[in-house]
Amino acid sequence: MADRVRVKSWMPPGHIRTPAYLRGKTGEIERRLPAFPNPELLAYHLPAPDIPLLRVRFTMEEVWGADAERPEDVIEAEIFAHWLEPA
């Protein structure tokens, strides 16, 4: 996984742990976490393979554009690898 990543802008139905406000946004990997079972399957009592989890740091400017309260402040969130692509 590249150090800079973009969150996919999928809008699938179901139980999703990738917040909509981060979809399509680009950030940098803050740290790599262990893999965890895919919550999108666990939510329905289904067998869930482990997926690497990454903490990604986004600037407020990237997420909110001109609406940012302070452009250089940051948001960090955990995003599963299948939601990320190299930026």
């Binding site: 139980h15 666990l42 939510a43 329905y44 009592h45």
Partner: peptide, 12 residues
């Protein structure tokens, strides 16, 4: 019997 994910999904 379920995980926190199942609980959340039902809440959602």
């Amino acid at each position: 019997f379920f995980t926190v994910d199942g609980l959340r999904r039902a809440l959602e």
